[in-house]
């Protein structure tokens, strides 16, 4: 366990950090996991620095030779399943239940496998989020159905827009636009349905829950740089959603 080459340690730890960051882990988790992995592989010292768009790692071996790597992380998604798997992996590596080579194999598989649900169940779940929030807002069966449809459509737009990498906040804007349009249309054809409840349900999947939660956790952990940028991300998302809704409300 203690004779892993420095390059291999860095490769494993940086990959773990990249997978965590790419799938929406908070900063302190990425830093701690990289540190524990490097130490478990026999590094004498390890220093990591993680910001939402990149990972920096310096590992020093027992002879005092340092090696620094930096990995730019582009295109963040949300996949808590992968975070749980990397978390489990780092635990098992630290306990000595798996060795370095096994860990690297598992990690490569985790990074590339398709996890979670395919499009149709994901759309159904997103629809349920919207529909059940409509129920919480005292909506009846009609509002439930319309909010379900609106939220479903939002998820489908996410599927269409996901190919346009590097264009931030477009999806939130288009999603809110569509949800508001569906709400207004439903209210136009069936005037007894509440437009407000339908639109609120429809924009529910666009709430930046992950950004807000991570911003809180980063600030608590003292990672102010990440906390601020994630907080700003949440605020800008909210603005994009508001713009989409406001345009439709102003026109219709």
């Amino acid at each position: 366990m203690k004779d892993v080459p420095l390059e291999e340690i860095v490769r494993l730890a940086v990959l773990a950090g990249e997978v965590l960051l790419r799938n929406g882990a908070e900063t302190s988790r990425a830093e701690e996991t990289m540190y524990h992995i490097a130490r478990a592989c026999g590094a004498d010292q390890a220093e990591c620095f993680v910001i939402p768009t990149g990972v920096f790692l310096t590992v020093t071996d027992v002879s005092g030779r340092p090696l620094t790597t930096m990995r730019r992380v582009k295109g963040r998604t949300i996949n808590l399943d992968r975070i749980a798997k990397v978390n489990e992996l780092s635990r098992r590596l630290a306990d000595g239940r798996i060795n370095h080579a096994e860990a690297l194999a598992i990690l490569s598989r985790v990074a590339n496998e398709r996890t979670g649900f395919s499009l149709v169940p994901a759309m159904a779940a997103t629809g349920l989020v919207g529909g059940s929030f409509a129920v919480l807002q005292d909506g009846g069966p009609g509002e439930l159905a319309a909010a379900l449809l609106a939220a479903l459509t939002v998820r489908y737009i996410a599927h269409l827009v996901s190919r346009l990498h590097g264009v931030q906040f477009t999806f939130e804007f288009l999603g809110a636009l569509t949800a508001a349009a569906i709400g207004s249309a439903a209210h136009y054809f069936w005037p007894w349905l509440s437009r407000d409840v339908i639109v609120v349900g429809g924009i529910m999947p666009l709430v930046p829950g992950m950004a807000i939660t991570n911003a809180i956790r980063d600030v608590i952990a003292g990672d102010l740089l990440s906390g601020l940028s994630r907080g700003l991300e949440a605020a800008l998302t909210a603005v994009a959603v508001a713009m989409g809704v406001v345009i439709v409300l102003a026109v219709m």
Partner: peptide, 16 residues
């Protein structure tokens, strides 16, 4: 509805 919503959000964010 809250229970359904919690489960659905979990699926949306790909919780194990």
């Amino acid at each position: 509805a809250v229970f359904v919503m919690g489960t659905a959000v979990g699926i949306m964010y790909r919780i194990p």
